[in-house]
């Protein structure tokens, strides 16, 4: 791991661990914008990382995973992905302002409608993809509020004037990688919370973590966490190498999405009733896992794409493809 990456990764982990309190999560989920925290992220240099840093994708992946670990209720992951796909001349005009990322774009008369825009209400800037072209609006207006069960904004924005550009990278793939890394981070956190709870909660005179049935469940959760993290990180590594990002993204999103479902159910089972309450911190992560796994292509979508790739490779082509120098 190179030094810049280690330093920035530590910075983001440290900062978010301190700042993203449960209070902040509650307030954000009630509609507040954590603007003060955004300013701190700016000050730490965590936003403009596509400005000449080496291996920016690896770094982006690490930052996004850290955001997932803390359930950061701000569009830092989305903004990084937008920076990655926009042509330099357009990106250079944006500074470090938060940017919303829309999952759908449609035309309605003379205006453009951005659907399921993550953190739409917190930004006038929004990016989406229409027919392979990037559609970017600087002065989008809020046309409808929505929120997934993550309770992070998923809004509808409308704009009359837009700029268009050819994507520098595959936006759908990078957005899928973003959700995969957020899931990997959140699963790591869920594992930590669940292991800790299992050592603290006492029933039948001993910590429930002493029961083999609980240990076996936590071992499964750990395996899913490791798989999600390796699959997600690998996709960003592939992007820096200029390899087949589409396939790596598909693997990452599909594998992390599968892990997300298993992780959430094991974590809740081990936590018992307390983990089912609004008061407990667990649901901030599990609700996001259930949201993220279905955004930017759920597992079966990416399984289909990967499956077509495998069928094209055929019986003799599969192994050479799997073992291609990564």
């Amino acid at each position: 791991m190179d030094d810049t990456r280690a330093i920035l990764e530590n910075a983001v982990n440290g900062l978010l661990m301190e700042e993203v309190t449960q209070k902040l999560l509650h307030e954000s989920e009630e509609g507040a914008f954590a603007g003060a925290l955004w300013a701190k992220l700016e000050a730490q240099g965590l936003i403009a990382i596509f400005d000449g840093l080496e291996n920016p994708f690896l770094l982006a992946g690490a930052i996004i995973r850290a955001c997932g670990r803390q359930a950061l209720p701000l569009p830092l992951p989305e903004t990084l992905v937008v920076h990655a796909v926009l042509p330099d001349e357009l990106r250079n005009t944006l500074g470090t302002t938060p940017i919303a990322l829309a999952e759908t774009v449609a035309r309605e008369g003379s205006s453009w409608v951005f659907g399921r825009a993550a953190f739409g209400r917190q930004s006038t800037n929004v990016l989406g993809l229409y027919d392979g072209t990037l559609i970017f609006a600087r002065k989008a207006e809020l046309a409808g509020k929505g929120e997934a069960i993550a309770r992070d904004p998923r809004d509808t924005l409308r704009a009359a004037a837009v700029e268009t550009a050819t994507p520098k990278h595959d936006l759908t793939a990078l957005a899928a990688m973003m959700r995969a890394s957020q899931m990997a981070g959140a699963i790591e956190r869920v594992l930590e919370l669940t292991v800790r709870y299992a050592t603290e909660r006492v029933q039948f005179g001993k910590p429930i973590g002493n029961f083999q049935a609980i240990q076996q469940q936590l071992a499964i959760l750990a395996g899913e966490s490791a798989a999600a993290t390796r699959a997600a990180d690998a996709a960003w590594e592939e992007a820096d190498r200029g390899g087949n990002v589409r396939i790596a993204a598909a693997i990452a999103k599909a594998r992390a999405g599968e892990a997300a479902g298993k992780a959430a159910s094991i974590a809740h089972q081990v936590h018992g009733a307390i983990g089912f309450t609004a008061e407990h911190v667990l649901h901030h992560f599990t609700r996001r896992l259930w949201t993220w796994r279905s955004e930017w292509g759920h597992e079966s979508h990416w399984h289909g794409e990967l499956g077509r790739h495998v069928l094209m490779l055929g019986a003799e082509g599969l192994w050479p493809d799997i073992a291609t120098p990564a």
Binding site: A231, I251, A254, R255, E299, W302, H303, V310, I322, A326
Partner: peptide, 17 residues
């Protein structure tokens, strides 16, 4: 097709691990 895709995602991830 989707089943092969899932298998591929698992295989690729296991090899990386």
């Amino acid at each position: 097709t989707a089943a092969f895709g899932r298998l591929y995602a698992h295989l690729a991830t296991l090899r990386r691990m």
